[in-house]
């Protein structure tokens, strides 16, 4: 049909008035009361929704109504990516045949699986065998629409947590970052092992003694070992990028940092590098002042000289 407004409407004013008979009437009356019932056939099966006859044999059903549900199992489904005007939901949803617990036949209804953009494909968790429950309308009139739709059983809840902290860096780290904010890399020399620890912690993790003697290190160093990362990271320039352990000149241990300014497949163990600082006006009290390390035009350091820092 063209997208223009329709030029003819067929509508019985006020809607048809249908008599429902005892079996469907009982079902809809129960539905209006918020209950789902089925009817038992002579051979013992339970039909939901009930009919006055056994669909297999044509015989009258018994007058025994039995409560079913409240949970049902999806026996098959279709997915509506672009709902029509008369559909019960105005966002993508499924049509499903639902066999209520205690029933032997299935009921057709809409199945709401949450919020999807128009045109979205079916979610992976929608599948035959899925357990679903009715969502009841508050105002009910005795119609199948008294169940607004079905929805999956609760299998998961989302648990947003947001906790607020006021963290401080600690004195040693604060001093280190103060240095970085001035373009300097500061470490501590341990009085026991004589090694320079950078970033310093105010103590030597190996010897367990306090450290206070500050040493300023150059922003040049050597790549000891590295990885080529093919998964994107917001801090890296592009994929692939290189994460490397860098032994700053004069330091006793390596720092983990990005290496850029060279194709990833040309990075080498022993390669000489220098910090690439952000423009001075962007500097803050943060390690992010150093964007990454870039190669220096110097010969590689032999493996023997770095093998003890791996």
């Amino acid at each position: 049909m063209p997208s223009d407004d329709p030029n003819h409407i067929l509508e019985f004013p006020g809607g048809y008035t249908r008599s429902v008979g005892p079996v469907i009437g009982r079902f809809l009356s129960e539905l209006r009361d918020g209950r789902l019932v089925g009817v038992r056939t002579r051979d013992g099966r339970v039909l939901v929704p009930p009919t006055e006859y056994d669909p297999d044999t044509g015989e009258d059903v018994t007058d025994e109504f039995v409560p079913v549900g409240p949970v049902g199992t999806v026996t098959t489904w279709s997915w509506v990516a672009r709902p029509r005007k008369n559909h019960p939901l105005d966002r993508p949803f499924a049509w499903a045949l639902v066999r209520m617990d205690g029933a032997d036949t299935a009921l057709l209804h809409a199945l709401d699986l949450g919020v999807f953009d128009e045109g979205a494909g079916p979610p992976k968790f929608l599948r035959t065998g899925m357990r679903v429950r009715p969502r009841w309308r508050v105002e009910r009139s005795g119609a199948i629409g008294d169940i607004e739709c079905f929805q999956p059983e609760v299998t998961m809840i989302t648990a947003p947590t947001r906790l607020e902290y006021r963290l401080r860096s600690g004195r040693a780290l604060d001093r280190f970052l103060e240095g970085v904010s001035q373009g300097k890399i500061i470490g501590h020399r341990c009085d026991v092992c004589g090694q320079v620890i950078v970033p310093m912690k105010g103590l030597c993790p190996k010897d367990g003694v306090p450290t206070t003697q500050e040493v300023e290190l150059p922003d040049t160093g050597t790549v000891t070992t590295f990885a080529v990362n093919n998964l994107p990271d917001p801090r890296a320039p592009e994929v692939p990028f290189v994460s490397a352990y860098i032994l700053l000149d004069g330091a006793g241990l390596t720092m983990l940092a990005l290496v850029a300014g060279i194709p990833a497949d040309q990075v080498r163990m022993g390669m000489r590098v220098k910090a690439k600082w952000r423009p001075r006006e962007e500097w803050g009290k943060t390690m992010a002042n150093i964007r990454w390390f870039e190669p220096l035009d110097e010969p590689d350091v032999p493996f023997d000289a770095i093998k003890d820092y791996l």
Partner: peptide
């Protein structure tokens, strides 16, 4: 105040 410029287990262990 993180001082590492790299995240993730792979980035740590691959080197």
């Amino acid at each position: 105040y993180s001082t590492s410029l790299v995240v993730g287990a792979g980035g740590y262990f691959a080197p």
